[in-house]
Protein backbone atom coordinates (compact mmCIF):
# COMPACT_ATOMS: atom_id res chain seq x y z
CA UNK A 1 0.00 0.00 0.00
CA UNK A 2 1.34 3.40 -0.94
CA UNK A 3 1.54 6.04 1.71
CA UNK A 4 -1.43 8.35 1.76
CA UNK A 5 0.25 11.51 2.97
CA UNK A 6 -2.80 13.76 2.86
CA UNK A 7 -4.93 11.30 4.81
CA UNK A 8 -2.18 10.76 7.34
CA UNK A 9 -1.84 14.49 8.01
CA UNK A 10 -5.62 14.84 8.29
CA UNK A 11 -5.88 12.00 10.82
CA UNK A 12 -2.91 13.41 12.70
CA UNK A 13 -4.62 16.79 13.01
CA UNK A 14 -7.83 15.15 14.23
CA UNK A 15 -5.93 13.26 16.93
CA UNK A 16 -4.15 16.49 17.89
CA UNK A 17 -7.59 18.12 18.22
CA UNK A 18 -8.65 15.26 20.51
CA UNK A 19 -5.59 15.30 22.74
CA UNK A 20 -4.14 18.83 22.90
CA UNK A 21 -7.03 20.11 25.11
CA UNK A 22 -6.49 17.22 27.53
CA UNK A 23 -2.74 17.87 27.57
CA UNK A 24 -3.38 21.53 28.37
CA UNK A 25 -5.42 20.41 31.41
CA UNK A 26 -2.56 18.19 32.54
CA UNK A 27 -0.07 21.06 32.25
CA UNK A 28 -2.30 23.61 34.03
CA UNK A 29 -2.70 21.28 37.01
CA UNK A 30 0.94 21.91 37.94
CA UNK A 31 0.82 25.72 37.89
CA UNK A 32 1.58 27.71 41.04
CA UNK A 33 -0.76 30.61 40.23
CA UNK A 34 -4.13 30.55 42.02
CA UNK A 35 -6.04 30.84 38.76
CA UNK A 36 -5.57 28.57 35.79
CA UNK A 37 -2.84 29.72 33.42
CA UNK A 38 -1.28 28.35 30.31
CA UNK A 39 1.66 28.29 29.94
CA UNK A 40 2.21 27.87 33.68
CA UNK A 41 4.62 29.64 35.97
CA UNK A 42 6.46 27.47 38.44
CA UNK A 43 5.69 23.89 39.31
CA UNK A 44 3.75 22.47 42.21
CA UNK A 45 1.81 19.36 43.17
CA UNK A 46 -0.21 21.27 45.80
CA UNK A 47 -3.41 21.26 43.75
CA UNK A 48 -3.56 17.49 43.94
CA UNK A 49 -3.46 17.77 47.72
CA UNK A 50 -6.21 20.41 47.55
CA UNK A 51 -8.45 17.93 45.71
CA UNK A 52 -8.21 15.44 48.56
CA UNK A 53 -8.68 18.19 51.16
CA UNK A 54 -11.93 19.21 49.48
CA UNK A 55 -14.53 17.28 51.45
CA UNK A 56 -17.28 17.67 48.86
CA UNK A 57 -15.05 16.13 46.15
CA UNK A 58 -14.14 13.20 48.37
CA UNK A 59 -17.71 12.56 49.53
CA UNK A 60 -19.18 12.85 46.06
CA UNK A 61 -16.48 10.57 44.69
CA UNK A 62 -17.41 7.89 47.23
CA UNK A 63 -21.11 8.35 46.46
CA UNK A 64 -20.44 8.10 42.71
CA UNK A 65 -18.55 4.84 43.19
CA UNK A 66 -21.36 3.36 45.27
CA UNK A 67 -24.22 4.50 43.03
CA UNK A 68 -22.43 3.36 39.85
CA UNK A 69 -21.61 0.01 41.46
CA UNK A 70 -25.06 -0.75 42.85
CA UNK A 71 -26.82 0.62 39.78
CA UNK A 72 -24.76 -1.76 37.65
CA UNK A 73 -25.32 -4.71 40.00
CA UNK A 74 -29.08 -4.10 40.00
CA UNK A 75 -29.04 -3.86 36.20
CA UNK A 76 -27.13 -7.16 35.99
CA UNK A 77 -29.47 -8.95 38.40
CA UNK A 78 -32.48 -7.90 36.39
CA UNK A 79 -30.88 -7.70 32.97
CA UNK A 80 -28.98 -10.99 32.66
CA UNK A 81 -32.10 -13.20 33.13
CA UNK A 82 -34.06 -10.89 30.84
CA UNK A 83 -31.35 -11.00 28.15
CA UNK A 84 -31.27 -14.80 28.46
CA UNK A 85 -35.02 -15.06 28.12
CA UNK A 86 -35.03 -12.78 25.07
CA UNK A 87 -32.20 -14.67 23.38
CA UNK A 88 -33.30 -18.22 24.08
CA UNK A 89 -37.08 -18.34 24.26
CA UNK A 90 -39.76 -17.55 21.74
CA UNK A 91 -41.18 -14.60 23.60
CA UNK A 92 -44.37 -12.97 22.40
CA UNK A 93 -43.45 -9.55 21.00
CA UNK A 94 -39.73 -10.27 21.44
CA UNK A 95 -38.40 -7.36 19.38
CA UNK A 96 -40.83 -4.97 20.97
CA UNK A 97 -39.77 -6.03 24.46
CA UNK A 98 -36.11 -5.76 23.54
CA UNK A 99 -36.61 -2.21 22.25
CA UNK A 100 -38.45 -1.46 25.47
CA UNK A 101 -35.47 -2.64 27.50
CA UNK A 102 -33.18 -0.43 25.40
CA UNK A 103 -35.54 2.56 25.58
CA UNK A 104 -33.82 4.35 28.49
CA UNK A 105 -31.16 5.35 25.94
CA UNK A 106 -33.74 7.11 23.79
CA UNK A 107 -35.19 9.24 26.57
CA UNK A 108 -32.84 12.20 27.19
CA UNK A 109 -30.94 11.74 30.47
CA UNK A 110 -32.08 15.07 31.88
CA UNK A 111 -35.71 14.04 31.24
CA UNK A 112 -35.16 10.66 32.96
CA UNK A 113 -33.78 12.43 36.03
CA UNK A 114 -36.44 15.13 35.97
CA UNK A 115 -39.35 12.68 35.73
CA UNK A 116 -37.91 10.43 38.45
CA UNK A 117 -37.47 13.45 40.68
CA UNK A 118 -41.03 14.63 40.10
CA UNK A 119 -42.66 11.22 40.48
CA UNK A 120 -40.51 9.28 42.92
CA UNK A 121 -39.10 12.00 45.12
CA UNK A 122 -41.81 14.68 45.10
CA UNK A 123 -45.00 12.66 44.69
CA UNK A 124 -44.11 9.32 46.29
CA UNK A 125 -41.73 10.84 48.85
CA UNK A 126 -38.90 8.36 48.22
CA UNK A 127 -35.53 9.43 49.64
CA UNK A 128 -33.48 11.30 47.05
CA UNK A 129 -30.73 8.69 47.06
CA UNK A 130 -33.14 5.94 46.01
CA UNK A 131 -34.28 8.06 43.08
CA UNK A 132 -30.61 8.57 42.16
CA UNK A 133 -29.93 4.82 42.32
CA UNK A 134 -32.97 4.07 40.16
CA UNK A 135 -31.87 6.68 37.62
CA UNK A 136 -28.45 5.07 37.37
CA UNK A 137 -30.02 1.62 37.14
CA UNK A 138 -31.86 2.94 34.07
CA UNK A 139 -28.55 4.12 32.56
CA UNK A 140 -26.98 0.69 33.13
CA UNK A 141 -29.76 -1.65 32.00
CA UNK A 142 -29.48 -1.13 28.22
CA UNK A 143 -25.74 -1.96 28.28
CA UNK A 144 -26.46 -5.25 30.06
CA UNK A 145 -29.30 -6.19 27.69
CA UNK A 146 -27.24 -5.34 24.60
CA UNK A 147 -23.85 -6.81 25.52
CA UNK A 148 -24.97 -9.86 27.52
CA UNK A 149 -27.75 -10.48 24.97
CA UNK A 150 -25.32 -10.66 22.07
CA UNK A 151 -22.95 -12.89 24.10
CA UNK A 152 -25.77 -15.37 24.77
CA UNK A 153 -26.85 -15.27 21.13
CA UNK A 154 -23.30 -16.25 20.11
CA UNK A 155 -23.24 -19.13 22.60
CA UNK A 156 -24.07 -22.49 21.06
CA UNK A 157 -27.50 -23.46 22.41
CA UNK A 158 -26.82 -27.15 22.03
CA UNK A 159 -24.46 -27.29 25.01
CA UNK A 160 -27.39 -26.35 27.23
CA UNK A 161 -29.50 -29.04 25.63
CA UNK A 162 -26.77 -31.57 26.36
CA UNK A 163 -26.77 -30.61 30.03
CA UNK A 164 -30.57 -31.02 30.14
CA UNK A 165 -30.25 -34.46 28.63
CA UNK A 166 -27.63 -35.28 31.26
CA UNK A 167 -30.13 -34.50 33.99
CA UNK A 168 -29.64 -30.82 34.80
CA UNK A 169 -32.74 -28.76 35.54
CA UNK A 170 -33.11 -25.56 33.51
CA UNK A 171 -31.85 -23.53 36.46
CA UNK A 172 -28.84 -25.80 36.99
CA UNK A 173 -28.04 -25.65 33.29
CA UNK A 174 -28.19 -21.86 33.40
CA UNK A 175 -25.99 -21.62 36.48
CA UNK A 176 -23.47 -24.31 35.54
CA UNK A 177 -23.31 -24.07 31.76
CA UNK A 178 -24.59 -20.73 30.50
CA UNK A 179 -23.30 -18.40 33.22
CA UNK A 180 -19.64 -19.58 33.12
CA UNK A 181 -19.70 -19.16 29.35
CA UNK A 182 -20.98 -15.59 29.36
CA UNK A 183 -18.72 -14.15 32.07
CA UNK A 184 -16.79 -12.09 29.52
CA UNK A 185 -20.03 -10.49 28.32
CA UNK A 186 -21.14 -9.85 31.88
CA UNK A 187 -17.79 -8.30 32.74
CA UNK A 188 -17.80 -6.15 29.58
CA UNK A 189 -21.32 -4.91 30.29
CA UNK A 190 -20.36 -4.28 33.92
CA UNK A 191 -17.45 -2.08 32.84
CA UNK A 192 -19.47 -0.21 30.25
CA UNK A 193 -22.41 0.35 32.58
CA UNK A 194 -20.19 1.35 35.48
CA UNK A 195 -18.14 3.84 33.45
CA UNK A 196 -21.21 5.41 31.87
CA UNK A 197 -23.03 5.64 35.16
CA UNK A 198 -19.99 7.10 36.90
CA UNK A 199 -19.54 9.72 34.16
CA UNK A 200 -23.20 10.56 33.73
CA UNK A 201 -24.36 14.07 34.60
CA UNK A 202 -27.85 14.73 33.17
CA UNK A 203 -29.63 11.93 35.06
CA UNK A 204 -28.16 13.03 38.40
CA UNK A 205 -28.74 16.73 37.83
CA UNK A 206 -32.22 16.85 39.40
CA UNK A 207 -31.58 13.96 41.76
CA UNK A 208 -29.04 15.73 43.90
CA UNK A 209 -29.23 17.68 47.10
CA UNK A 210 -27.35 18.27 50.33
CA UNK A 211 -25.06 15.31 50.90
CA UNK A 212 -26.34 13.61 47.76
CA UNK A 213 -24.12 14.89 44.96
CA UNK A 214 -22.32 12.79 42.40
CA UNK A 215 -18.71 13.66 41.55
CA UNK A 216 -19.31 15.10 38.04
CA UNK A 217 -22.13 17.28 39.38
CA UNK A 218 -19.96 18.38 42.28
CA UNK A 219 -17.13 19.24 39.86
CA UNK A 220 -19.54 21.13 37.62
CA UNK A 221 -20.89 23.15 40.57
CA UNK A 222 -17.32 23.93 41.62
CA UNK A 223 -16.39 25.15 38.12
CA UNK A 224 -19.31 27.60 38.15
CA UNK A 225 -17.72 29.60 40.97
CA UNK A 226 -14.03 28.68 40.91
CA UNK A 227 -11.31 28.73 38.32
CA UNK A 228 -8.32 27.29 40.11
CA UNK A 229 -5.97 24.46 39.11
CA UNK A 230 -7.57 22.02 41.56
CA UNK A 231 -10.19 21.48 38.83
CA UNK A 232 -7.34 20.54 36.47
CA UNK A 233 -5.83 18.28 39.13
CA UNK A 234 -9.14 16.46 39.68
CA UNK A 235 -9.54 16.17 35.90
CA UNK A 236 -6.11 14.57 35.65
CA UNK A 237 -7.01 12.13 38.44
CA UNK A 238 -10.19 11.19 36.55
CA UNK A 239 -8.17 10.73 33.34
CA UNK A 240 -5.75 8.46 35.21
CA UNK A 241 -8.77 6.49 36.40
CA UNK A 242 -9.84 6.10 32.76
CA UNK A 243 -6.35 4.89 31.82
CA UNK A 244 -6.40 2.30 34.61
CA UNK A 245 -9.84 1.03 33.61
CA UNK A 246 -8.84 0.84 29.95
CA UNK A 247 -5.72 -1.08 30.92
CA UNK A 248 -7.77 -3.55 32.97
CA UNK A 249 -10.25 -4.02 30.13
CA UNK A 250 -7.46 -4.44 27.56
CA UNK A 251 -5.70 -7.06 29.70
CA UNK A 252 -8.88 -9.03 30.41
CA UNK A 253 -11.24 -8.72 27.46
CA UNK A 254 -9.45 -6.60 24.91
CA UNK A 255 -10.73 -3.09 24.27
CA UNK A 256 -12.39 -4.27 21.07
CA UNK A 257 -15.08 -5.90 23.22
CA UNK A 258 -16.42 -2.56 24.42
CA UNK A 259 -16.02 -0.39 21.34
Amino acid sequence: MRKQIGLKIFAGLVFAFLFVPLLIIVVTSFGTNSTIQFPIQGFTLDWYGKVFENQSFVNSFLLSLQIAFWGTVLALLVGVPAAYSLARHSIFGRNWIKSFFLSPTIVPGLVVGYSLYQFIVIQLQFPLIQGLLLGHFLICLPYVIRVVGSTIEQLDGSIEEVSWTLGCTKLQAFMKVVLPNITSGIFASFMLAFINSFNNIPVSQFLSGPGVTMLPTSLMNYIEYNYDPSVSALSVILMLGTVVLMFVIEKTLGLASIS
Binding site: F15, P21, L22, I25, I201, L219, S235
Partner: peptide, 24 residues
Protein backbone atom coordinates in the same frame (compact mmCIF):
# COMPACT_ATOMS: atom_id res chain seq x y z
CA UNK B 1 -5.48 -1.17 18.22
CA UNK B 2 -3.46 1.79 19.47
CA UNK B 3 -5.44 4.31 17.42
CA UNK B 4 -8.72 2.80 18.63
CA UNK B 5 -7.55 3.10 22.24
CA UNK B 6 -6.61 6.72 21.60
CA UNK B 7 -10.11 7.34 20.25
CA UNK B 8 -11.75 5.49 23.10
CA UNK B 9 -9.88 7.40 25.80
CA UNK B 10 -11.68 10.75 25.43
CA UNK B 11 -14.98 8.90 25.11
CA UNK B 12 -14.48 7.26 28.50
CA UNK B 13 -13.30 10.50 30.11
CA UNK B 14 -15.87 12.53 32.00
CA UNK B 15 -17.67 15.10 29.85
CA UNK B 16 -17.26 17.80 32.51
CA UNK B 17 -13.50 17.37 32.12
CA UNK B 18 -13.77 17.54 28.35
CA UNK B 19 -15.94 20.68 28.44
CA UNK B 20 -13.71 22.25 31.07
CA UNK B 21 -10.75 21.86 28.70
CA UNK B 22 -12.46 24.27 26.33
CA UNK B 23 -13.05 26.80 29.10
CA UNK B 24 -9.29 26.97 29.58
Amino acid sequence: GLLMSLTLFPLLTNSVVRSFAWIT
